[in-house]
Design a protein around this nucleic acid. Structure first.
Lengths: 353, 353
DNA sequence: CTGAAAGCGCTTACAG
DNA sequence: CTGAAAGCGCTTACAG
């Protein structure tokens, strides 16, 4: 490493030019009160003139402050281990910014329990917190919580799904409509005209499942835009395997000539299990998310394509955005849509969530 | 931000416990000479005991050193603007680590001029340099250069293409063989058995073009592994449009029933131009790289799939790896293969290079 | 082989 | 409204 050529501009130099002490310069730098308008203007002019860039290392070292960030996402459940992936992203970001005096408190709630969400937000609000990362599964409660954050000027980011107009610092997640639209585009390459397509939704409360609804909408919109006939639809409202098996079985009885199945979320592995059990790996199966259960079926070619929108990176970027904002006062774009990745048996070994 | 609870362990505390001065602790911390074996052992025990983690902010602030990194990649040429993308990655990384006293010198060479590469490596070697990022287009010259780097203990990373066994800190780039293999897997979904596939190589010196050769190898291997008949092949050794047009034209005269064309690099836009000119957008066209020229043809559906391996991220990660190694002494994995991304008209708007 | 002192560029009480 | 001084946790000459 080379010796640093003497830093040309620092608080010292500004103070010298203004004929004041560095303490006063510091006050102006941080918009603190107790400086006469006259000195303030003078110092500001010098700061601008010198194009002063504060030394952030020194700033953080001297202040001796710790940045307190909180993440609140669903806990890993037996239903799906999806949420272990965003958590990885939080941990990765934590590892990287740890050296800069940042503390990340990781809180979790139960996706099937509205109250658990509210409880955790209470905990956050009772603590001294500088920034929040949130996966807002319960919309109303999330709005209530983030309204308070906004009052207190605590920046927050959403991941996984957005609540528009809620003044979040940023949203990191999929564009769900386009995700479905893109899948249909791919499907268009994979089937012949008039081939039967089955669209499967698996969720306990499909009507409230924003993810599923928007993807389905996009998927169908593409078909309509391109004069492709509508898919057959199947809604499965119990997520255990026997329920999936039963529903799939009756659908296939009715439509034995289905060529392609599209499952609108990560439960695709259950459909894969069914297709494997009846020896119909020839049917093209498309679903969501790079989870070990799904990859297993991708590798044995029961699943043909997995769509994935980098859940780990969502959380990673979310934490970093908070850090950038709070430490460097960097402006953050208010929306960051993740890429819509297409994963196959052959490229999956290089995929990064 | 919360006040930091008093840091429990620092050089001061270690010095106190060892009954020595902090200067001596510092010497042990950095393995500098001039400490008796006895004190050294004692101090090391205490360091371990306290699980001492140095404050990196303080370290960099006090040392007053600047880290000098150099990047050496091809310049943007009229042939292709591919290399503007990795440059973006360098600039992004620079922006992020700028606050930590890192200087990045960006050097470029002419892909068609071996000498220009050597000249630039000379410049690097004459300077005080802490780490190097290199896109090693000229293998022999790159080996010679990196041998010297190794002697001088200057860490270096490769991007875009690897030179195995050269003891680089890391390689960030595609696994070319698997890239071709993955494309063939995709092709398998897109054609019927016995459909004709045309494989097109466009390069001034195909025999020396590692990228093309390995991708072709992987592509053919898949076909062989899956009993699919061999592709028709076309080699075009002049990269201007008239030459491409001429070669394509005669290939299509010979094989009017070609169903799918695979171009093994970013020159796919020239083939797209040809297919558009003869009104054969129905032919499935697959090529490489997320470049504006290619995206144009993707959007009008002349190109159907673009394969991309995140050239921006390659460079970004390369720079960060050097930084992590030099500042934090973090261990770096010696190979990082980029994902093999499949881009279509519909998901391209969210793609990140 | 070892230590006392100055300093990196800031922030933070405290005093006036 | 303003400044002198101490300090953040290290590193770096310099002296012995």
């Amino acid at each position: 490493m080379g010796k640093k050529e003497k830093q040309l501009v620092g608080v010292k130099e500004i103070a010298r030019r203004a004929g004041v002490s560095i303490a006063t310069v510091d006050r102006v730098l941080h918009n603190r009160s107790g400086v006469s308008e006259r000195t303030k203007t003078k110092i500001q002019a010098i700061i601008k003139d010198l194009n002063y860039q504060p030394n952030l290392l020194a700033r953080r070292l001297a202040s001796g402050k710790t940045l307190n960030l909180v993440t609140l996402i669903p806990e890993v459940s037996e239903e799906t281990d999806y949420w272990s992936v965003p958590l990885e992203g939080v941990l990765q970001a934590e590892k990287e910014i740890q050296p800069y005096n940042v503390k990340i408190t990781k809180l979790f709630y139960d996706m099937n329990n509205r109250e658990s969400f509210v409880n955790q937000t209470q905990i956050i609000l009772n603590d001294k917190v500088d920034g929040v990362l949130l996966a807002p599964a319960f919309i109303d409660e999330a709005i209530e919580f983030t309204d308070i954050c906004q009052e207190r000027k605590i920046p927050f980011v959403f991941i996984n799904s957005d609540i528009p107009n809620q003044k979040s610092l940023c949203y990191f997640g999929p564009n769900l409509y386009h995700s479905g639209y893109s899948v249909a585009h791919l499907v268009n390459y994979l089937i012949e005209k008039d081939d039967k397509v089955l669209l499967v939704n698996i969720s306990k409360d499909i009507g409230a499942d924003h993810h599923i609804l928007r993807k389905e909408e996009g998927f169908k919109a593409y078909l309509k835009d391109h004069d492709i006939k509508e898919p057959i639809q199947l809604s499965i409202t119990e997520t255990d395997y026997p329920s999936v098996q039963k529903s799939m079985s009756s659908a296939f009885k009715k439509h034995p000539d289905i060529k392609l199945v599209f499952v609108t979320n990560s439960r695709v592995s259950k459909v894969a299990k069914y297709l494997a059990s009846i020896g119909r790996e020839d049917i093209i199966l498309i679903g969501y998310d790079f989870l070990s259960e799904n990859i297993k079926y991708l590798e044995n070619r029961t699943i043909d394509f997995l769509i994935c929108e980098k859940p780990q990176e969502q959380a990673y970027r979310g934490v970093r955005a908070l850090y950038q904002k709070l430490v460097f006062e960097v402006d953050i774009e208010s929306e960051y849509f993740m890429p819509i990745d297409i994963i196959t048996k052959e490229n999956c070994q290089f995929y990064k969530n």
